[in-house]
Each structure stands twice: as structure tokens, then as C-alpha cells.
């Protein structure tokens, strides 16, 4: 069994204790995914597993065997051009130190997919009514698992809103 990360296959670690995050960072040279708390509280390690956002520090690497992982390194186009959401983060200064940023971006991509398929959130007024209205409040609620200590929250929300409003699909 292999783990596919951004289209490239990697071996499943022999040691079953290895988290997906440590496999990426320490064994695959993919240090874009960040370690913040190692207990699922900060969101810095967020990656997309078969398109769903997961906390890679709480996911064992073996759980990703045979599945597709997309990390921040796989978000920009192969030829290097920034993804429009990455560009929006720069435009709105949606970061300072940049350490939570890969997790914020991966989380936002997963979150927008959840939104598109009609998943409600805690602040969605009409749980039965299908598509929720996209708003600052919805973004804030759905992104609250991604901590930022520099305080770039306003810029992050503005960047996500700009990207979503532009209708830029994946």
C-alpha cells in the first residue's frame, strides 16, 4: 500500500505510531504542513484527505494508505503559479508570520467544498433549507478550528470571501 501525496506515491511508514503529519514533515520532505499543538487544537496541520479537510496530527499515516492526500505543496499549479486563494491571502495580508497559513488555506479549500454541498454549520439559520448563505459569519464559524496568533483573522476571512465570490472553482 502507498500513500499518494499531491500525485506522488510514498511508502506507508513501518512504525504504525507515525502520524500523517510526521510522515509528511519528517519522512517525505513536505514541511509545508505545520506542527502547532500535535493534539488537534490549532489546525496548522490541516490537509485534504480524499478532498476532506483533516487534522494530520490526529490522523495516523496508516489511515491514509491507499488514499489521496493534498497538502499546501499541491495547492499551487504544477507550473508554479499561485492558486487564486493563495494570491488572495497575499492581497488581503491574511497572515503575518506565515506559520498557520498552509493550514488556513487547506482548511478553507475543504470548507468551501463542504459549503457547496450544503453542509450546515452552527451559525446556519435554516438547517433544512439546503444551501446556506455565504457570509463572514459562516466563514468565521467554519474556520474557527484554525488558530492564528498573529491576529490576521480579518485578512483571512476577506481572502476567502474574495475567492469564493469570484466563483473560482477548483
Amino acid at each position: 500500500m502507498r500513500i499518494t501525496v499531491n500525485g506522488t506515491d510514498y511508502p506507508v511508514p513501518d512504525d504504525v505510531r507515525v502520524s500523517l503529519l510526521d510522515m509528511l514533515r519528517e519522512r517525505s520532505g513536505l514541511t509545508g504542513s505545520k506542527l502547532g499543538c500535535n493534539q488537534g487544537a490549532c489546525g496548522a496541520c490541516t490537509v485534504l484527505l480524499d478532498g476532506e479537510r483533516v487534522l494530520s496530527c490526529l490522523t495516523l499515516a496508516v489511515q491514509a494508505a491507499g488514499r489521496e492526500v493534498r497538502t499546501i505543496e499541491g495547492v499551487a499549479a504544477a507550473e508554479g503559479e499561485l492558486h487564486p486563494l493563495q494570491q488572495a491571502f497575499i492581497d488581503h495580508d491574511g497572515f503575518q508570520c506565515g506559520y498557520c497559513t498552509p493550514g488556513q488555506i487547506c482548511s478553507a479549500l475543504g470548507m468551501l467544498e463542504e459549503f457547496r454541498r450544503g453542509d450546515p454549520s452552527h451559525v446556519t439559520a435554516d438547517l433544512a433549507g439546503g444551501q446556506a448563505r455565504f457570509s463572514h459569519e459562516e466563514i468565521r464559524e467554519r474556520m474557527s478550528g484554525n488558530l492564528c496568533r498573529c491576529g490576521a483573522h480579518n485578512g483571512i476571512v476577506a481572502a476567502i470571501l474574495q475567492f469564493a465570490d469570484a466563483g473560482a472553482g477548483e
Binding site: 499561485l82 497575499i90 497572515f95 506565515g98
Partner: peptide
């Protein structure tokens, strides 16, 4: 900025 948003 570009380095930080790429995780680079």
C-alpha cells in the same frame, strides 16, 4: 508572501 502561502 509567496513563500509563506506555498508552505515554502
Amino acid at each position: 508572501g509567496p513563500d509563506k502561502v506555498r508552505g515554502g
